[in-house]
Computed example of a mutant assay.
Amino acid sequence: MSAPSPSPRPAQPELLEFDALYRREFAYVWRMLRAHGVPEARIEDAVQDVFMVVYRRWADWQADSRALAPRSWLFGIARRVAANHRRRQARESRPPDLALVAEAEAPADERTARRRALARLERALDELDERSRTVFVLAELEGMTGPEIAELVGEKLNTVYWRLRTARAKVTKKLQARGGQP
């Protein structure tokens, strides 16, 4: 049995398109991964993983590009990569997150306060199921509307609104229980 052949590389014009997509959507992919629970220490690897998938699947996406917008495609890939990174982190019994250790040891200044607030938010988001977390992140952090989210995640609009309402309530409750403001 012969070894599988490597995926074909995009042709030069497609490589330029890939580069343009990378430059245009890097920050979006970074935010999506971070919002989906990829620890800051692993975020660069996760972004690279997303764009490696994009590179390998470029020809497939180009063939179907009329059916799927670039951000929708990147969102789906980023969500799967984030889930893989979270599973990998759970398997590797790693020491506590360095951001949390730094939070406990750092002086109480504005930067530390922001870091603590972000850590509280991340812990609250970690307690949401994946679908609710996705809707919350897209609405609250990305500023997307209900109809935009429904289209992106492929759910009914009323379901999106229900998930958002319950996610907001859960996050608010968790933040208040931990001494943070909603």
Rank of each mutant, 00 (worst) to 15 (best):
G154F: 04
K174G: 09
D49W: 02
G146C: 09
A3R: 08
K173M: 06
A63V: 02
V50W: 06
S93A: 12
Q48H: 13
Y28N: 06
A169D: 15
S72G: 15
A63D: 12
L74V: 04
I43N: 14
D64I: 00
R165L: 09
R79C: 13
F51R: 03
F18A: 04
W162Q: 10
P147F: 08
D97K: 00
R87M: 10
R94K: 09
H85K: 07
M144K: 14
R23P: 04
I43K: 06
D60V: 02
K173R: 14
E105W: 05
R34H: 14
R116D: 06
L100P: 00
Q181M: 01
L21P: 03
E122W: 04
K173C: 02
N158M: 05
D45K: 01
P39N: 09
E14S: 12
P10W: 06
A27T: 13
Y22K: 02
L157S: 12
Q62Y: 01
L121N: 04
V29R: 03
P107R: 12
R56I: 01
V171L: 01
E14L: 05
E25R: 06
A150F: 05
A106F: 05
L121K: 00
A104L: 12
A104Q: 15
M32N: 07
L175W: 00
G180W: 00
V160W: 03
Y161K: 07
E151R: 15
R123Y: 00
E130C: 01
R131V: 11
R87Q: 14
D97P: 02
L128I: 07
R71N: 12
D97C: 13
E142R: 04
V135K: 00
L100N: 10
W61R: 09
R111C: 03
